[in-house]
């Protein structure tokens, strides 16, 4: 389990990184925290000619709150975000979600943007990003572009990122005042990728559900925003009946779920609905 040979570059600016990537195209790969990529290299399942380590680019490790968004740079470690002062107040959903990602010893290295770029459908951060309505800032040879999380994920381990593009920051809008939130998931062991999970945010206004947002993960090729469930919830009276109905709509919305040694397709579909219902209940209680 030793990596194949590759060249290594440690650019000191985004422009330089992009230029390197552009030059090598598919033969180059970005290295961020390495928590996914290095395991693949050790198994020789990835064989880039060039690794572009973006950890030496100054400024990419910044976290700030601006324009009502939590702005997370490309090299922000998952753990650094977890310890970002005030995160429990400014973005409790993200904090709760981060705690489900692997273990502290992995989060100390793994980056938020690396997880987003890696786009594992069972990962928490992509689902959180879709649920929170995050925007991604992407820089490539043709300059900067911005894309919503919802549009970013295409399929298993595939995003709209071109080989020469870098995800430079993720912007997570802060939750609206009075929003309730919840992340629920089933894993085989604590810290494992989810067999199925759900992220829900909502407000309660005049004893009715308002602005619901429901995302399931671990079930399809990308985080699944469940608009049918959201529509059913909007304006509904909070309570078990509503959660159950909307949960069933989540299960219905799941298409072609993964079937593997840990869970069957039918199970994933059903459990996604259950997780969504449980998340709705908890989110409502927090709202």
């Amino acid at each position: 389990m030793k990596p194949p040979a590759f060249e290594y570059a440690a650019p000191t600016s985004v422009a330089e990184a992009v230029a390197l990537l552009d030059e090598r195209g598919f033969d180059a790969k970005v290295l961020a925290g390495g928590q996914s990529l290095m395991a693949l290299l050790n198994m020789r399942l990835a064989r880039p000619e060039l690794l572009v380590d973006i950890a030496r680019v100054p400024g990419l490790d910044s976290i700030e709150i601006s324009d009502g968004c939590l702005v997370v740079g490309a090299m922000v470690r998952q753990r650094s975000l977890e310890f970002f002062p005030g995160l429990a107040d400014s973005h409790p959903l993200l904090l709760a979600g981060l705690r489900h990602v692997a273990h502290p010893q992995n989060r100390n290295q793994g980056t938020v943007c690396g997880s987003l770029a890696h786009a594992d459908p069972a990962a928490e951060l992509p689902a959180l990003a879709v649920a929170a309505g995050a925007e991604f800032v992407i820089e490539g040879p043709d300059g900067k572009r911005s894309e919503s999380a919802e549009d970013f994920f295409i399929t298993y381990l595939t995003t709209t990122l071109e080989p020469a593009e870098l995800l430079v920051e993720a912007r997570f809008p802060l939750l609206r005042e009075g929003s309730g939130w919840s992340v629920q998931e089933v894993t085989r062991r604590h810290g494992d990728f989810a067999l199925a999970g759900a992220v829900v945010t909502m407000r309660i206004a005049d004893a009715r559900v308002a602005d619901p947002r429901v995302v399931a993960f671990g079930v399809g090729a990308v985080p699944l925003r469940c608009t049918a469930a959201e529509q059913a919830l909007a304006g509904a009276e909070p309570g078990p009946a509503a959660w159950k109905e909307a949960g069933a709509l989540v299960a219905e919305a799941v298409e072609d779920p993964l079937d593997d040694v840990h869970a069957s397709a039918a199970q994933r579909r059903s459990v996604a609905g259950v997780m969504a219902s449980r998340a709705m209940e908890e989110a409502a209680a927090r709202a």
Partner: peptide, 15 residues
């Protein structure tokens, strides 16, 4: 690594 616990098996020495 700078006081944080990390996996040295999935990290390059150059990092």
């Amino acid at each position: 690594l700078d006081g944080r616990a990390v996996r040295s098996c999935i990290m390059l020495a150059v990092q």
